[in-house]
Design a protein around this nucleic acid. Structure first.
Lengths: 250, 250
DNA sequence: CGAGCGTTTGATCGGTGTCAAGGATCGTGG
DNA sequence: CCACGATCCTTGACACCGATCAAACGCTCG
């Protein structure tokens, strides 16, 4: 008989959390045509202005989305990890409005855009789940806007660390309060709209105050309450609760 | 016979631009149950942390989405105008992660969340069109992130003015290069993450340089090329072209 | 005509950026 | 296993953009 390829399982798991997928839906997701590709660190997966023919799902490793501005500055827009459907929007909008680049070595599944569109139409429940995922994406962008626009350096960094911790835990890569930072201080800086020099000072301050501790790239959140307070962090915007609620109702 | 209520027409027009809606789809959109409500300036339409029972569509006037941070700061996340489906995400995520408030007097259509969900499932083409609209939303958030994170005051303000001009034109409320600013300098400041004092100085500089001219709330873009250059503005992120392309292909 | 809100302007302050140099760590090849 | 170069981290001195504070001005609408 036909044995389904399981490489898309992490993405399916994430979609299933919304609780509306039947067995046929799940099978259809796993049956999406795709090929797995390995990217080395710092490689481009999508470049701004391209019209990608494939959408990509993260299987392992970390990647980011970013934009370059006129004077050469870079703004990192989001961080992606196992199970994330990184550039789903390209399948529906056509032109990429930002670039996607790896942070670490990554395994990525490339799915033809057309297959994604067809699946969304043929199986509305799957389409809705993917839609909900992109809505959470949007919510995270909004929180980042508030973070970068209206918080000071210490809060911005603390907020990002809280988010990374929670998201890593939610996909089962380390714990919320102890994980490997997948990015350099330069990259952290471009994520929170500071300079790497200032991120460095901010991290050391948080460490001096006993809120976090670090060694190499591994980060430990010594006092989650303090860090969340410093970062004005409230996990609501990740909509983890809403996902559970939706699943229970279904 | 049954005469359809046409108040949702502006929203339908916007969805139709994606080019995939049949006659039955369009009728179903117009048939969405709803009631029209008038809001005065500065009124809340949705508050953060609520679980709204209705999604709202802008029929006239202007509104905004915003978040408050711990120290009392406010970040405006987006500006909404005729035809915008403002808080579609609440229909699918449950808890509002931000507030919606009017800028001017507004007419708003309130649609039960459940009706929106049912329509998206029953008519996948409509669901896709709504999805695409929210994807453009996401693209605008990303551009704002880059704007606020990596551009200086002059560029930020110029960029916002360009965006407003284009969007107003695209929904037929004034021209791209001459329109009524729907917001105070205080609100402009919270949209571009500056203080109103600095926004004021920046606007006067742009005026002194002959890039724009103002009288009361009405704004004229004297030199679009200069303003776009100053704002590092490239309209690609609004995906207006992609929308036309999609419509032609369909 | 007065109250309230929004705009304008000046003086000063402070958080982050910039520049520069040295130190640590990592990957790679001999 | 060590040497080397490249990348990343750390630190200090100083500059500057935009914030803050304060006050006056001008509309608009009772």
């Amino acid at each position: 008989m036909f044995k389904p390829n399981l490489s898309l399982q992490p993405m399916l798991d994430k979609l299933s959390l919304w609780g509306n997928l039947g067995a046929a839906d799940r099978a259809a997701v796993l049956a999406l045509p795709h090929r797995v590709r390995v990217y080395q660190p710092h490689q481009h997966v999508v470049r701004e202005r391209e019209r990608p023919s494939h959408a990509c799902v993260m299987l392992s490793g970390f990647s980011m989305r970013h934009k370059l501005v006129g004077d050469g500055g870079r703004q990192i827009l989001s961080i992606h990890m196992k199970g994330d459907f990184v550039d789903l929007q390209n399948a529906f909008l056509g032109t990429a409005d930002h670039s996607v680049q790896t942070l670490t070595r990554c395994e990525v599944a490339l799915i033809p855009c057309e297959a994604v569109r067809e699946l969304a139409l043929a199986r509305p429940a799957v389409g809705m789940a993917m839609w909900q995922d992109t809505l959470v994406d949007g919510s995270i962008f909004r929180e980042w806007l508030a973070n970068i626009g209206r918080r000071d350096a210490r809060s911005r960094v603390a907020h990002l660390l809280c988010e990374l911790g929670l998201r890593l835990k939610s996909v089962g890569v380390g714990q919320a309060s102890a994980f490997e930072l997948p990015m350099t201080q330069d990259q952290l800086a471009d994520a929170v709209a500071l300079t790497s020099v200032h991120v460095n000072r901010t991290l050391r301050n948080l460490e001096r105050d006993g809120v976090i501790s670090r060694s190499k790239r591994s980060l430990t959140i010594a006092d989650w309450a303090k860090l969340a307070l410093a970062g004005d962090f409230d996990s609501e915007y990740l909509h983890l609760e809403d996902r559970e609620l939706a699943a229970v109702c279904a």
